[in-house]
Design a protein around this nucleic acid. Structure first.
Length: 950
DNA sequence: ACATGAACTTA
DNA sequence: GTAAGTTCATGTT
């Protein structure tokens, strides 16, 4: 049996899909904007199988043109499948090329699915004495399992399981794997759109199989069933038999198993390397070389020259050098000694990497360490604390590293005074202007240290910010970065302190040796990442953006967050009670109108009430998940005809207001400071904007009278202070006017005209003083539409214009502002040519879908190409203003503090005696942050709360 | 306990 | 039509 030859048949699409979705949260995009997730995922699986099992025969099977037979039987077959994602269709040609270069045969047959091809080949191989392993996660294959045919299933979390007859029997509760067909036929398969018997799911199907053995057996004995189930089965006998047929994998596909052809041969290494290089697979290349490394000793064709020769010949699988099957066993080794540990992925960890991490506790060691530390030019550090909130966190330790693979950890005593003593010894390091400090998310560490009265001075390098500029669309947490760029899996925080929730430990409770390994590893990795990103910043031309904007801004944000803002809790409590009364009253009305009590906040229940019970509409709109849509725009449409609808909309608005703002905000006041401290995210928004959370202070209501009351709760520090809000007027329109050099629009801004009225006057060809409200409003909508990348469709949705009217309006608009249209086209062209667009400061956004064949996907990318430079440039400009204002406030020793940023607005807590100076300072810095051909204009407002200051 | 979708808030 | 975050209900682990 051990000598029996083994054939592996790979179900290509199943593994490709699996690989693609494994990366769906964090798609692999290379510098050319290609989504390589699917290729990467598939190749990982393929190499994994080869490495683990060292098959002597292998082929990869694809579907082609779907199953004509099955579609003929049942028109709906696979009809409700979503279109194959673009990331997959574009991957297929690459995968074909790689397989060809690897000399692995590709099996496809027009009009058949991979299942059928694999089934047929497995039967032929069985006759020739092979053991066949079908590499697929798809359960349908279980029907093919015999004594010599197995499923080889990848399992989540890595590894594989082999399903033979016993496993299939157990899983499906059948006597014979063939009964899997009956099982699938009965319960159906929603992904293939096999109907199955109505009302029969997994449980019932298993019961039927046990009782009747097969679909035919069931249909012949329906007298033994009862009730509804009996009726249903009897009525759907035909559907059941059809379903069984659809679920049956064919064994007579016109393909042939050719043992010689299927032998796993040596790949054309150079060719594969070339393709991988093109796709920018670094780790995979190593993995590939490693996989095929240990067979080369005996083989002659592994030298570069040889391989190149082979390439210039015919690199098709057919062109094999004849090598006796047994003698030329590629891998030579017995698969059984290929241990699990060996194949457990190639990513490095602390365990597999030499390192020297040391904790420093004694006084003498600390002295030596400090001396050494102060001699460095550049040091990476990372603080470990008791809390994720830096304001309440206490230091548990600090890790330092300045040499790859080495580092030190200083544990901090729990006693506050002793901790302060230790930090005092580090003060000269942190406050040194000459030593560069490296870290991942330095804003956190800086805030922690600020609580110990230590300021971090000198040049900074934040790896998270660096990567945000290099690839803003990815995520930037350290684990992802380490895995992507260093092929290294760091120790997870969970292995130290446990899963979050009930019994999570504090870092303080972790044994010192574990703390040391974890903390110094973080510093070590961050140091390595810095070396990596340093060059990439230059390549992406974003070095200046990094040094002059993002890094300085980090200190500004740290100060704003530490400062927090004063909140009038009592006022919100009063508001909450009012809202509560009104919400209850609305509830009463709604229940009465509906004739039933239900959860109004549940879209599902609400949909049933409105569209099934009350039947307000003939054909209700559905969401993609099949529920009735009760979205705002759908309901608004009905509001004038049905009183209940307006009440529901009001209910929703008030509930949101109460739960998200009025009730939530007071709970976010930090005990220690009595203020609300938001956290600005500097690396989240793809355009370069900031985002705010815990709580989000960038979406405090303002549009409705009721909502804007919440702003009254944001108040100055005390009576000596007042709030100042400074906001850019029309900054995005000014930017697009300046960038497009559209003179008409530029001069309107220069003359201080009302830009929407001015646009209306030109588009509708009336004198500016005769522009009607409606005309101005439509012009305003188009102006905004331009910023978002207009379509006639979108515009007509926003206004009461029809699609054609909207189209006409856009055409006239472009005729009025021809350079604006050119600008838009230029942005899209630039994106097509370069794969990215950029802001005034060179901040890039990569647009992988800009050349997509799918018009919807491409359209979205085109709108991004227009919007990102505008939204992003506005973000750049306010960031410059913030940095400059922050600097001036410190230099001038002002008591006034900058508190909030809301995209185009800054809010200050102004010390009253400084008011006039601050007004001038803020307006000047904001208006002169960046020189455009259009003047920037800033409105200032002052008040005793945020609403008055507007 | 955790993830997702719908709905609602902002610039 | 762009960019975000929070809450609630619901379904899965």
């Amino acid at each position: 049996m051990s000598n029996q030859k083994r054939l592996f048949l790979v179900d290509a699409y199943a593994l490709i899909f699996r690989g693609y979705y494994a990366f769906i949260k964090n798609p692999r995009i290379n510098s050319k904007g290609q989504d390589t997730s699917a290729i990467m995922g598939f190749m990982n699986s393929l190499l994994d199988v080869i490495k683990r099992e060292r098959p002597d025969h292998l082929a990869v099977c694809f579907d082609k043109g779907g199953s004509t037979d099955r579609v003929e039987m049942y028109g709906e077959y696979k009809a409700n499948r979503d279109a194959t994602p673009e990331g997959i269709t574009t991957a297929i040609p690459h995968i074909y090329n790689i397989l060809k270069a690897m000399h692995i045969p590709i099996m496809v047959k027009e009009g058949y699915e991979a299942d059928d091809v694999i089934g047929t080949l497995s039967r032929q191989a069985e006759k020739e004495g092979y053991k066949t392993y079908m590499v697929t996660p798809d359960k349908d294959f279980a029907q093919l399992v015999t004594e010599n045919v197995f499923m080889y299933r990848p399992v989540f979390g890595g590894g594989y399981e082999t399903w033979g007859i016993p496993e299939v029997k157990k899983k499906f509760e059948v006597e014979d794997p063939m009964q899997v067909i009956d099982f699938l036929g009965m319960m159906g398969d929603s992904s293939d759109n096999i109907p199955g018997l109505p009302g029969v799911g997994e449980k019932t199907a298993k019961k039927f199989i046990a009782q009747f053995g097969s679909m035919e057996g069931l249909l012949a004995n329906t007298d033994q069933l009862k009730g509804k189930m009996k009726e249903k089965v009897e009525a759907n006998g035909k559907l059941g038999l059809l379903s069984k047929k659809l679920a049956t994998i064919m064994l007579d596909v016109p393909v042939e198993f050719d043992a010689k052809d299927f032998e796993l041969d040596h790949p054309d290494v150079e060719k594969v390397k070339e393709i991988f290089q093109e796709l920018e697979f670094r780790r995979l290349t190593e993995n590939f070389l490693k996989t095929f490394a240990n067979d080369s000793s005996a083989s002659t064709n592994s030298t570069p020259q040889e391989s190149r020769e082979q390439k210039t010949e015919q690199p098709t699988p057919k062109e094999k050098k004849s090598a006796g099957a047994g003698q030329f066993s590629l891998f030579g080794t017995d698969p059984s000694n290929d241990t699990k540990a060996d194949s457990e992925y190639t990513r490095k960890t602390a365990e597999t990497t030499p390192h020297f991490y040391q904790s420093v506790s004694t006084g003498l060691a600390t002295k030596l360490f400090l001396k050494n530390l102060m001699n460095q030019a550049s040091v990476c550090f990372d603080t470990e604390t008791t809390d994720i909130n830096p304001i309440t966190a206490e230091l548990v330790g600090i890790a330092f590293s300045w040499e790859v693979g080495k580092g030190f950890y200083l544990p901090f005593p729990e006693n506050k005074d002793e901790a302060q003593e230790l930090i005092e010894q580090l003060r000269s390091f942190f406050e040194s202007e000459t030593i560069e400090k490296i870290g991942q998310n330095l804003k956190y560490d800086i805030k922690v240290l600020a609580k110990y009265n230590v300021e971090v001075k000198g040049k900074l390098f934040d790896t998270m910010l660096a990567h945000y500029l290099i690839n803003p669309d990815m995520r930037h947490n350290m684990d992802v970065l380490a895995e992507t760029y260093l092929n290294y899996t760091p120790i997870s925080i969970e292995t130290l302190i446990g899963k979050k929730g009930k019994n999570q430990l504090s870092m303080r409770e972790v044994p010192l040796d574990k703390q040391t390994e974890y903390a110094v590893e973080d510093a070590d990795i961050t140091l390595q990442l810095k070396e990596h990103f340093q060059n990439e910043l230059g390549e992406a031309n974003t070095q200046k953006l990094f040094d002059d904007i993002e890094v300085p801004l980090l200190r500004v944000l740290a100060d704003m967050e530490l400062e927090g803002i004063n909140l009038h809790k009592g006022f919100l409590n009063g508001l909450s009670e009012e809202l509560d009364k009104d919400i209850k009253a609305l509830e009463e009305k709604i229940y009465k109108e509906a004739g039933k009590e239900f959860n109004i906040a549940s879209p599902k229940q609400l949909g049933v009430i409105l569209f099934e019970k009350m039947k307000l509409v003939d054909k209700p709109k559905k969401t993609k998940s099949g529920q009735y849509s009760t979205a705002e725009d759908v309901l608004s449409y009905l509001a004038k005809d049905h009183k209940i609808i307006q009440n529901i909309l009001d209910f929703r608005g008030l509930s949101k207001l109460k739960s998200t703002y009025v009730d939530a905000l007071p709970t976010q006041v930090l005990e220690q400071t009595g203020r609300v401290h938001t956290d600005y995210m500097q690396t989240v928004a793809a355009t370069g904007r900031l985002s705010s959370n815990n709580p989000n202070l960038q979406n405090i209501p303002i549009r409705t009278e009721r909502g804007r009351q919440v702003r009254k709760a944001f108040i100055p520090r005390n009576e000596d202070y007042t709030l100042l809000a400074a906001d850019y007027s029309q900054i995005e329109l000014r930017i697009i006017a300046a960038l497009s050099k559209e003179e008409t629009m530029i001069s309107a801004f220069k003359n201080g005209e009302d830009i929407h009225a001015s646009t209306a006057s030109k588009v509708f060809n009336v004198p500016i003083e005769e522009v009607s409200r409606e005309q101005r409003s439509n012009a305003k909508t188009v102006n905004f539409g331009i910023i978002y990348g207009v379509s006639a469709f979108g515009l007509s949705n926003q206004t009461d214009l029809s699609r054609t009217e909207a189209k006409e309006l856009i055409d006239t608009y472009y005729a009025t502002y021809p350079k604006l249209r050119n600008f838009i086209h230029d942005q899209v062209d630039f994106a097509r040519d370069n794969g990215y667009v950029q802001t005034v400061l060179g901040r890039r956004r990569y647009l992988k879908d800009i050349n997509s064949r799918n018009a919807v996907v491409r359209g979205a990318a085109e709108r991004n190409a227009v919007n990102a430079p505008i939204q992003g440039s506005a973000a750049d400009i306010i960031k410059i203003a913030m940095i400059n204002i922050h600097k001036k406030l410190i230099e001038g020793d002002f008591k006034t503090k900058m508190l909030l940023q809301v995209h185009d607005e800054l809010v200050f807590d102004v010390y009253k005696p400084e008011l006039e100076d601050i007004k001038t300072l803020v307006k000047t810095e904001m208006e002169n942050a960046y020189q455009l051909d259009v003047p920037l204009d800033v409105d200032l407002d002052i008040g005793d709360n945020w609403l008055e200051a507007h």
